[in-house]
């Protein structure tokens, strides 16, 4: 196990200040000297972490196992389920299908940075209000995707549900459903997830 980094309480996005956090490195570097490592500087939720990682480390494992930001979940580890969805430079990706080393200098936002229990992001609050989960395992990924898709609609990113490609994109129910299709929920909380996102859309309109 690697040493736990000290997470500053102010690592939320709203109060993001770039702080240098201690670098939890590989615990037994000498015993693994034959395994290639690389140095990575990850900026997660406004905090910069200097890490030395086995090159094979996915962004997901770096977040969970090295930075102990366990809000981001591992479902399939193969890009199928969306439990590992995080925002990188403002767009959502699957953290399991990316190497930590590929994110040197990128700005990463996880569910922990989106909001805190005392200062919830409106989407987090909407998920709570609509009971948009059962076991909660897919929820961080669902919320990160939900936040990102509203921005994608705003930016005119089309989806399979889009009618006229050149018209202004609408956050209709079919658009929301299609755009959320990369986030699987084994508990089948889809209808409440849909309601939570629709409420935010309605509030924003």
């Amino acid at each position: 196990m690697s040493e736990s980094p000290k997470l500053s309480a102010s690592s939320g996005l709203a109060s993001a200040s770039i702080a240098e956090a201690p670098a939890p490195t590989s615990p037994h570097p000498s015993s693994r000297s034959s395994i290639p490592h690389s140095s990575v500087s990850l900026r997660v939720n406004g905090t910069r972490y200097a890490l030395t990682l086995d090159t094979r480390t996915s962004l997901l494992d770096a977040l969970r196992e090295h930075l102990h930001l366990t809000g981001t979940k591992k479902g399939c580890d193969h890009g199928h389920c969306g439990a590992c969805t995080v925002l990188v430079n403002g767009t959502r990706i699957n953290a399991c299908l990316s190497l930590a080393a590929m994110h040197d200098a990128d700005e990463i936002l996880t569910i922990e940075g989106l909001g805190t229990p005392d200062d919830l992001h409106p989407m987090q609050a909407a998920f709570l209000r609509h009971d948009a989960f059962q076991c909660g395992y897919c929820t961080p990924g669902q919320i990160c995707s939900a936040v990102a898709i509203l921005d994608e609609i705003e930016r005119g990113v089309p989806s399979h549900a889009t009618g006229d490609l050149t018209a202004r994109m609408e956050a209709s129910h079919s658009e929301l459903r299609e755009r959320m299709s990369g986030n699987i929920c084994r508990c089948g909380a889809y209808s409440n997830i849909q309601a939570a996102i629709a409420e935010i859309v309605g509030g924003a309109a």
Partner: peptide, 14 residues
């Protein structure tokens, strides 16, 4: 249309 018929939003971003 072909692109958005494939994979997911997360994957297409990457």
């Amino acid at each position: 249309r072909a692109i958005v018929a494939g994979a997911t939003g997360q994957l297409r971003n990457k």
